[in-house]
Structure formats: C-alpha cells, structure tokens
Design a protein around this nucleic acid. Structure first.
Length: 427
RNA sequence: GGAGAGGUGUCUGAGUGGUUGAAAGAGCCGGUCUCGAAAACCGGUGUACUCGAAAGGGUAUCCAGGGUUCGAAUCCCUGCCUCUCCGCCA
C-alpha cells in the first residue's frame, strides 16, 4: 500500500498514477476518511489522557486513606465515552485500511503510458540473428507445436492429467520429467552463482501473507483455497519469499538480501480458454524458480536491471530467442511501479510466450508486510522489494521442444542442460 | 488428537491490580582512561500513531482479540504459537 502521509502530501501525483494505470480513483474517499479518523483519534486520546491523570489521583487519594467516590463516578462516565469512541474509531480504521489496500502503486516515470498490448515497448530482443543461435530454421521444414511432439515422444501426458485431476494438470514422463528436473536444477544453480540464497518455502500460505504481497483482498479468485484451514496454495513463490521477513527490521549492511526458490505454483486461471491454453501454455499447476530481492530504496532501479539481466542470462544460456517488454501502465499489476516481461519465441506456435515477469514494487509491498531496515544511527525505513521469475518452466519446456525439434520429430537438449539430464536428445 | 507448562524490550530475565516503557544483566552507541586496544567507569539506547513550524506534548504497545476495574504486564474468557509427555505418522 501507499503511505497515507505520501497520499496526503501528493494527492495529485497519486491520482495521476491511478489514472495512468486505468484504475478507479478513490483518493478523495481516502482523504476524507483519514481526516475523520484523525479527528476521532484526537478526541479519544484526550479522554484517555484524562483517565490516566485522574486514575493516578485516585491512587493517591486512596493511599492517603480518603474516599474517592466522587472521582470514580466521574470516571465511569469517561469510561463509557472512551468505549463508544473507540468503537467508532475501530470502524473507521477498518474502512480506512481496507480502502487503502485497494489503492494501487504509482507507476515510475519511465513507464510508458498505455492500456493496450501494443503500448508495451519491446526494448530488446535476442535470437536467430545472434551468432550463437542454433535452433530450428523454419525454412527447412514446418515446425510443430510442442503438444504434438510431446505426446508423440511420450514425455508429457495431458489426457491422464485430465482423468486424475483436471485440465491444466499434465503428467510429465520419461525424459520430459527428467528435463523438468534438469531445468529446475540449472536455474537454481545459476541463481546461487549470482548470490541468491536458496530457499524451500512452504507451499501453502495464510491470509496475512497473501494480503502482504497483494493477492488479497482483490485477487482471491486466482488462488486455490484450503477452506478448512484457511490456507491458500502458493500461486508463486513470491508470496512465501517476500513474507519471509514480514514484520522484521533488517540491518542496512545486509542489503540487498536475495533469495531464490523453486516451487510448484497453483493458479485457478478462471476464465481462461481458447488456443492460448493449449499444451503447456497455461496450466493450473506449474513449476517455477522465483527470484526475490529486498533492497535499499536508493538502489532498487539498478537492482531491477540486475534482476532482468540475471533472468535474461538464463535464456541466453539456453539459446532461446526472446524479447524484453517494458510493460505499459495499464498492463502493469496493482502492486508494481515498473515491470519487464521476458517472452520467448515458440517457433511451432509462432507466438511469444511470457516466461518471466520482473518487477519493482518500491516500498508498496514492504509497507504491507512491514519490512524495514535501520539506517545507520537512524530510524527504520521501508525497504524496496523486487521479484522476477528465473524462470517459469512449462513455457521454457514448450520453447525448447519447439525450437530444438528436428525434421524427424526429435528434440535436441540445449547444451547447458546436458550435465543435468545425462542425455542430449529426446526421441 | 489427549494431558500439562509457558508466551515480557535486540537477547537473557524480574515483575501477580496504582509514578512500570517496564528491575537487573548482556548487547549496541557515545564519552573518560590508553600510544592503541582490552578491562574499568560515566552517559545513552524500542516502535507506531497523533498534535506541533520546532522545541516538545499526548496515546497505544509486556503473543492477539474481547472482558472485569476509576485504574491491568499483573485478574477472567477466546484464539494463535512454543515447549514437555502420551497417541499417530513419512
């Protein structure tokens, strides 16, 4: 969430940001409630002060052996007033906090304004023209989409997934399963090499954690819920990783703190349909290695570029053609101030697949989860948080299958994975 | 799941209704001493909200939420968590 003080002092700037994101502007409501809230606070605190002073007097009177009936009956009235004001305040604060949680983060000035996919800027691409690119050349033969190849090679079984669980829960088999495991290990090892601490987080999260990273209160529909225990299946490792330091004060010299984690991710994806859910393109359960950073506010945009290049390096090592999109204001999430998407080219489908989303949240999440650091000799201040996928597995698998297919329907394994897979070709 | 014990500041740990934001010690910061360091000694050392231009006030905070009381870290209820024992289990 945003700092109420910041909103109070820069209402126009915040409104402008909301407008750019295409969200509903409720800033005037926030400010009105804030005013009401502070008025009630002042009233109750004055009464509480009176109560404290008189109570102390009563103590003295009683000690001296005298009667304090007069003062006590007076305080009985004050007590009731305090109670009713406290109730009023509680209601106002609840409303105020809920409203504040729905105010989106303000976009960074460098983010292009727009609301359509075309407004996202492709700022970099890497691929076929690169001398190291060794993938398929579509002039040689007509490349197939990954689901056809995968079924034929018996490495992914979509039908059995439907039987056992439902659509979007495939079985990986044989060298397909091994390829998954190889990619996870490759990604984790690379992250470790870049100084990310490896974590195996819980796969279920509670309400507070989901609220902290912004999945709640609005986006409950995207998660699977375990009602009986009030838990959610992780939609991304971002949630447990970012909440790892909830309510903590980090020490300045420890920043930046960098974590990586592999987890399955569970998403309901309600409302998805059509060809962009075919095969591995959109699943309810998928594997992902996630990167999260807690950083000094002054460095967060540098750290964002660092995160981006860490993720890009993986694609380059896998020799997969990709492009980098700087996402426009309207395509950015609720919590982000700047976001890049990495999209890999899937030659069989002839489309771009998003494999990583790299964001700076500035202090937006940190304020929700209350993660601060202490300035040398000074007051605690909120850190900035960032995250990025490094990377999401299924679409990488799809891209490998499609871009490394041979005319005979085999798939060549990218060189960097050989030591993890133990084989160099599938089929 | 059953039975018991317990949750106090950065940490250890006192405190069972009235100057308790909270003893004491450790840690940390500053100072004295020292060529320098250690030791010793002296001083300082939570957070949030709120009023205020500031200085400086005020309120809250001893796991969380309710309750009793003029007044609660202290009494009562509920929840969460930790520990011990039993059961179950990979």
């Amino acid at each position: 969430m945003l700092d109420i003080k910041f909103i109070r002092e820069h209402p126009d700037l915040v409104k402008e940001g909301i407008r750019k994101k295409g969200d509903v502007d409720r800033i005037d409501e926030v400010l009105l409630l804030d005013k009401k809230r502070r008025e009630v606070i002042q009233k109750t605190e004055a009464l509480k002060n009176q109560r404290n002073v008189v109570s102390e007097e009563i103590a003295k009177i009683k000690k001296s052996g005298q009667d304090a009936i007069q003062a006590i009956s007076e305080m009985n009235k004050v007590k009731d007033e305090i109670k009713s004001l406290d109730n009023e305040l509680r209601k106002i604060e609840e409303e105020f906090n809920n409203l504040l949680l729905t105010i989106p983060n303000v976009p960074h000035p460098s983010v292009p304004e727009g609301h359509k996919p075309e407004d996202n800027q492709a700022i970099f691409s890497w691929g076929k023209l690169h001398p190291e690119y060794i993938g398929v050349n579509e002039t040689d033969f007509e490349p197939k989409p990954h689901w056809e190849l995968a079924e034929k090679l018996d490495i992914i079984d979509f039908g059995t997934g439907v039987k056992v669980t439902g659509a979007g829960f495939p079985f990986y088999k044989n060298r397909g399963a091994k390829l998954q495991r190889a990619l996870i290990n490759f990604f984790l090892d690379e992250a470790h090499g870049k100084g990310y601490i490896e974590i195996q987080p819980p796969l279920m999260i509670n309400t507070a954690s989901a609220t902290g990273t912004g999945q709640l209160p609005d986006k409950e529909d995207l998660m699977y819920v375990v009602n009986r225990d009030e838990l959610y299946l992780v939609p991304t490792a971002e949630v447990p990783l970012t909440n790892l330091h909830r309510d903590e004060i980090l020490s300045e010299k420890d920043l930046p703190v960098k974590y990586c984690a592999y987890t399955p991710c569970f998403r309901r994806e309600a409302g998805s349909y059509g060809k962009n859910v075919r095969g591995l393109n959109r699943l309810h359960q998928f594997d992902k290695v996630e990167l999260v950073k807690f950083v000094h506010p002054g460095t967060s945009y540098n750290e964002l570029e660092g995160l981006r290049s860490d993720a890009e390096a993986l694609l380059q090592k896998l020799n997969l053609p990709y492009r980098v999109l700087l996402m426009c204001t309207g395509d950015m999430g609720f919590t982000q101030s700047k976001k890049y998407d990495l999209e890999v080219w899937a030659i069989g489908q002839k489309c771009w697949l998003e494999v990583s989303s790299i964001s700076n949240f500035e202090s937006f999440q940190a304020r929700r989860i209350n993660v601060r650091f202490r300035l040398a000799g000074g007051k605690p201040e909120f850190v900035h948080t960032l995250n990025g996928s490094g990377l999401a597995l299924p679409r990488i698998v799809a891209a490998i299958i499609e871009n490394y297919q041979t005319p005979e329907g085999k798939v060549i394994v990218p060189k960097v994975l050989h030591k993890y897979t133990g084989f160099e070709v599938i089929g």
